[in-house]
């Protein structure tokens, strides 16, 4: 009963493609199976991804590999402190004849075909840029040259350096809520992998590493269709709906649900967040995960597998706890999952 039904042969074929996609990425990025799986889930859930982690753990390499395997038009910008929204949309320069020219910038250059927009070091950009990004992510459209540009296949991947605090701008809550997932990347802990990463010259040259990834494994143009189909194809039972509602209220009112964390006053921990959009994202991502696992029913395990990445960045804590966010939130998510009964 857990197998995909034959009627959904297209879903089965796409699942094979998705697994092949994961295998291709894993060629370039080793020891990050979880991050790769989450990125794959995000692609098939049609959600934007924010990668977060230390310097040099492979965030950019992962995103470059993903962009290559995904196919479709690809643009990349680097966040800087002096970047303005116009820099994303317009490219202004002095032409050979000495007159100023305005041409489409990185976002508009590929127009409708743009499928992967890669924003490096997003927290270095100013809030003005973030707000532009907000619309781009939420509505997949932007106003420029006095008309509206639409990007039906657009998927935004951003990365953020966790270490740097100087000259950075924290993402506003609204912008964070629009990301489907915030994936934390850590260096692999396996000693063998660490040795390989340190000594194998293959991993020293990122360009050739990314070049090993087979291009265009997935047709980005068709992903929207299959994403919609699988959202309908994965069954969620009343018991699971009940579980989600319990999870949701546990996040909003942890004290009432009996969640206890050391050194935290549970009744004044959560200020807000866990929006309906966030819960909807959680279910979308969980359905994709169920599909990748070869099931046609949604299980609590699927929700748990994507819970931290889809929910943690949407939970806003009281200011007194916000500074300790990095430490409290993983524990909080773990406690929620460990407390809410399933089924």
């Amino acid at each position: 009963m857990n197998q995909i039904r034959p009627a959904d042969a297209a879903l089965t074929d796409w699942r094979q493609a998705a697994l092949r996609f994961e295998a291709e990425i894993a060629k370039a990025v080793v020891g990050q199976e979880r991050a790769i799986r989450l990125v794959t889930i995000a692609i098939f859930a049609r959600g934007h991804v924010l990668l977060e982690g230390d310097v040099g753990v492979g965030k950019t390499t992962l995103l470059r590999a993903v962009a290559r395997a995904l196919g479709g038009a690809y643009e990349r910008v680097e966040g800087t402190v002096d970047m303005m929204p116009a820099d994303l949309i317009y490219h202004t320069y002095l032409a050979e004849d000495g007159r100023p020219r305005i041409e489409p910038g990185p976002v508009l250059r590929r127009s409708q075909d743009l499928s992967v927009f890669f924003f490096n070091e997003i927290n270095r950009a100013r809030p003005q840029v973030h707000s532009l990004l907000l619309r781009l992510m939420a509505e997949r459209s932007v106003q420029a040259f006095d008309r509206e540009y639409r990007f039906p296949h657009l998927q935004v991947f951003a990365d953020r350096n966790r270490v740097e605090r100087e000259e950075t701008f924290e993402l506003p809550a609204a912008a964070r809520d629009r990301f489907l997932m915030e994936i934390g990347m850590e260096a692999p802990t396996d000693p063998d992998l660490r040795r390989r990463l340190a000594f194998d010259p293959r991993f020293h040259d990122t360009d050739s590493l990314v070049a090993e990834v087979a291009p265009d494994v997935i047709d980005q143009g068709a992903v929207s269709g299959i994403a919609a189909a699988l959202q309908h194809g994965i069954h969620a039972s009343p018991a699971l709906e009940e579980y989600v509602v319990r999870l949701w209220s546990a996040v909003r009112e942890p004290a009432k649900s009996g969640i206890v964390l050391p050194d935290v006053a549970m009744d004044s921990l959560v200020q807000g967040g866990a929006s309906p959009r966030g819960i909807a994202f959680l279910i979308r991502a969980a359905r994709v995960r169920a599909w990748l696992e070869g099931r046609d029913v949604l299980l609590p395990e699927d929700l748990r597998a994507v819970f931290h990445e889809t929910m943690a960045h949407r939970i806003f804590l009281e200011p007194v706890y916000e500074m300790r966010r990095e430490r409290i939130l993983p524990e909080f998510c773990r406690a929620v999952l460990a407390t809410v009964p399933a089924p």
Partner: peptide, 13 residues
Amino acid sequence: ASRAAFFGRDPAA
């Protein structure tokens, strides 16, 4: 059995 009963399409199975 639990998956089938609570989350499956056919709980009686």
